[in-house]
């Protein structure tokens, strides 16, 4: 009996997104749960990275999947469901940041976009550090987590989208309604800031690299 159940779960797990979406459309809650199990860590990481706040990330991850369920009958999946989930998550994340008035993507461009290489000054201190989550992480994860949390929201968004989610710069510019050059400039400034925060890890990486 248990073996059959496990086989059933494994069977679902090996099915393609298209098949699971089709089954979910027909009312198969197990198929929808399998899609959730497959993609929620990535959606959560994206939103947590963008928002820098665990509770908001939980709420919006739920929102993404609730919307996915509602949209299922109209959803056309060519390859994977994740493309749709990611788009929805990014839109929700940006809306949330705008609504909470933490970020005005356009108006704050000037101080960060000068080509003169002025030292980066964080004008929006991040007040949403999640200490409890940081405690749970190991050394590497803790270091990465803190480095990300140190970034202002407008820089964290482009960093997470480009470096972690590998969204093309052009697409980010379109999503945020800012020029491509601004995105690149923010990435450059954020890279410098991250490099300072990740100093111990980067030195370790360089030492290992030099060994070969």
């Amino acid at each position: 009996m248990i073996d059959e159940f496990v086989q059933g779960i494994q069977g679902l797990n090996t099915r393609s997104d298209t098949e699971l979406v089709q089954r979910a459309k027909e009312g198969d809650a197990g198929a929808f749960e399998m899609l959730y199990a497959r993609y929620h860590p990535r959606v959560y990481r994206l939103l947590y990275g963008m928002l820098g706040n665990r509770d908001d990330a939980v709420d919006l991850t739920q929102e993404v999947f609730v919307r996915a369920w509602i949209e299922l009958p109209r959803l056309q999946i060519e390859k994977t469901l994740y493309g749709w989930l990611r788009r929805t998550a990014i839109n929700l994340g940006i809306d949330h940041l705008r609504r909470s008035q933490l970020v005005r993507f356009q108006s704050l461009d000037t101080p960060f976009d000068d080509e003169e290489g002025e030292p980066l000054e964080w004008q929006i201190p991040d007040e949403t550090q999640d200490v409890q989550a940081a405690v749970e992480l190991n050394e590497l994860q803790e270091c990465l987590h803190r480095a990300l949390q140190q970034l202002s929201a407008i820089h964290r968004v482009v960093v997470v989208l480009h470096y972690i989610e590998e969204v093309p710069v052009e697409e980010i510019a379109q999503q945020l309604s800012i020029p491509v050059g601004t995105v690149k400039s923010r990435l450059a400034r954020a890279r410098e800031a991250l490099r300072r925060h990740l100093e111990p890890l980067l030195n370790k990486g360089n030492e290992e690299h030099d060994m070969y």
Partner: peptide
Amino acid sequence: ALEWVPLLLGQWSPPVPSEQIWAG
């Protein structure tokens, strides 16, 4: 060192409160 930054960030994986999210 600057080149390593994106590579390191790619390894960031925060603990996911899966059950809490699903319950909601």
